[in-house]
Write a protein that binds this DNA or RNA. Structure first.
Length: 551
RNA sequence: GCGGGUGUAGCUUAGUGGUAAAGCCCUGGCCUUCCAAGCCAGUCAUGUGGGUUCGAUUCCCAUCACCCGCUCCA
């Protein structure tokens, strides 16, 4: 089954070809498979194969080690305002439904959509706005998706067209003053869709539930509905008090979590880039409001460096700071770390991680009730009855600085990374082809996955040059010596050149080969994946040498 | 969800209303002293479900998946 059939002009493009080859290699070598493939697959779900699981685990382990367990609580890292502590959590996928109401996901992820039968476009029900317009006894609700500054112009133009009038007849149109949202209109048959030429082309609004819904309890009905988490972050916010009370951490500190999240994406596409089940690596960093700007900048740069340190090139990786008008007003900064995936058109980038300054929005929402994102200063969002739309926990999630006796609601910096997206970026970055001579000296194309050694699924392969003269026995002993410390692989089948090539495709950085000199001098060769160079080291020093090169 | 395209072995491709072909890969063996060599043998496929037909991989319908363009993207 063709996993990636780049068609039309995209077939010409080098990057699409590269993507096609990468997808093929991922399946052939066992990095990634379609979920439930023998039943035809399931859209938006992917399985990691034997090599893929090692790769992804290495990515997650590197993140956890670099952000949490390896973090030095006592020092001030470069760029940081002061020392800080890091700790971790592992929360459940299913949480109290109120969590998602206060986080805003419930409202945001329960979109009602209308389709236009004529233009085949789809709109969010609550985002379509317009005005009633009357001409010649006919009353029509004209809608537009245009921005506020061009809205009037667009409405008038489209109304004139509908009524077959010229521009000079504009004053014959009788407009209602009020701008209404589509949900405020009773009859959709009177509505002129934003891209339609006739009225009545919009379908009734249909619910699109972007959170996976499930039932808690065997006999559960709708009142027992629960949701699979669409992000891991909320588990951290609702455990903020638990962590503070149980660990003696002091602000500033961060809580990290790695885990699965689920979003019922309308259009999963681009290999694993947009999956319905995916894994996140998130940090919620809690700090004093006064220093939050400095911490935001620190985390933005720190996270960018993490990717480059693991081998993503500066050319394909960008840090994109959001424009002020893209931000919620309570956020004083958001940056995306983006990668130029080969499946994207030239010049476009896909998000690997977002670093957001979230202010006190999340903690306050879980205390007081869901805040209104549009309010300034932030106030609890109220329903039609004047009561909070979604009640908060009522628990005190503020923080008391014991020394200064200052009590405040911490501000939050949120570096939120996609583990699958990072893994995919590392796969794309690693894929390369070069030329290497075969045993006859003819140049052959060599496919090699140039993973950073830290994330390479297999760290080293051990080969006897030939299957005789006691070489396999020596090689097996080296394999056994290394295996407790590293994921190493033993292979004695076929020509050694073929074994090297297989490891190149798996991205194994080093191959250790036992040859006749091993028998005489107790030395082996270590072959470098990228340079093809071989260096000779003593058998007893192999483990140290591999360890040195991997660190 | 809409429109278009594509589904034959792990991969790349043939082909047919009547036994589905090849190369590479893979597995085993022989041979091999450093980069996909050679020889022998072997495993493995018409996405799924219907319909038409004596017979469907081929024709028709539906469905699923992937790709492209819309749409969506907290």
């Amino acid at each position: 089954m063709a996993l990636f059939d780049a068609s039309r002009f995209y077939r010409e493009s080098e990057s699409a070809m590269e993507m096609e080859k990468l997808v093929s290699l991922c399946k052939r070598r066992g990095f990634l498979f379609q979920s439930s493939e023998i039943y035809g697959g399931l859209q938006g779900f992917w399985d990691y194969g034997p090599l893929g699981v090692e790769l992804k685990r290495n990515v997650k382990d590197a993140w956890w080690r670099d952000m949490v367990t390896g973090h030095d609580d006592l020092m001030t890292p470069p760029g940081a305002p002061e020392p800080y502590e890091m700790t971790g959590l592992d929360c459940t996928i299913i949480m109290h439904p109120q969590v998602w109401k206060c986080s805003g996901h419930y409202d945001l992820f329960h979109d009602y959509m209308v389709d236009c039968r004529e233009s085949k476009r789809r709109y969010r029900f609550d985002q379509v706005r317009g005005r009633w317009c009357e001409y010649n006894g006919r009353r029509v609700f004209v809608t537009t998706m245009a921005e506020a500054d061009t809205m009037e112009e667009d409405l008038q133009r489209r109304a004139l067209k509908l009524f077959k009038l010229r521009g000079k007849d504009a004053d014959k149109l009788d407009w209602d003053a009020e701008i209404l949202d589509l949900p405020q209109v009773d009859k959709l048959s009177d509505v002129l869709g934003p891209d339609a030429r006739e009225t009545g082309t919009l379908t009734e609004p249909r619910e699109f539930n972007l959170m996976f819904k499930t039932i808690v309890g065997a006999l559960g009905g709708d009142e027992d509905a629960a949701f699979l988490r669409p992000e891991t972050a909320q588990g951290i916010f609702v455990n903020f008090k638990n962590v503070v009370d149980s660990t003696r951490v002091k602000i500033p500190f961060g809580i990290a979590q790695v885990g699965k999240s689920f979003r019922n994406e309308i259009t999963p596409r681009n290999f694993t880039f947009r999956s319905r089940e995916f894994e996140q690596m998130e940090i919620e960093f809690f700090c004093h409001p006064n220093s939050s700007q400095d911490w935001y900048r620190y985390w933005r740069d720190r996270r960018m460096k993490w990717y480059t340190d693991l081998g993503l090139s500066g050319e394909r990786l960008i840090l994109r700071e959001h424009d002020p008008d893209e931000l919620s007003h309570y956020s004083t900064g958001t940056a995306d770390i983006e990668y130029a995936f080969p499946f994207l058109p030239p010049g476009e980038f896909g998000e690997l991680e977002g670093i957001a300054h979230r202010g006190d929005f999340d903690l306050r929402s879980h205390m007081e009730g869901k805040l209104d994102e549009k309010s300034n200063p932030l106030v609890v969002q109220v329903g039609a009855d004047g009561k909070p739309k979604w009640r908060g926990s009522g628990k005190d999630l503020t923080y008391l600085n014991q020394e200064t006796k200052e009590r405040f609601t911490p501000h939050v910096i949120e570096p939120s990374a996609g583990a699958d997206r990072a893994t995919l970026a590392f796969l794309c970055e690693a894929y390369s082809e070069d030329e290497a001579p075969d045993d006859k000296g003819n140049m052959q194309t060599r496919v090699v996955m140039k993973f950073h050694p830290r994330i390479a699924p297999i760290k080293a392969a051990v080969f006897p040059l030939v299957k005789k003269d006691g070489m396999p026995e020596i090689a097996q002993q080296i394999y056994r010596d290394l295996k407790p410390s590293f994921n190493v692989f033993y292979d004695e089948k076929g020509a050694v050149g073929r074994r090297y090539r297989r490891q190149d495709e798996a991205g194994t950085p080093y191959c250790i080969t036992v040859d006749s000199e091993t028998l005489a001098e107790q030395t082996v060769t270590i072959r470098d994946r990228d340079s093809l160079e071989q260096t000779r080291v003593k058998v007893d020093d192999v483990a140290d040498e591999i360890r040195r090169r991997l660190s």
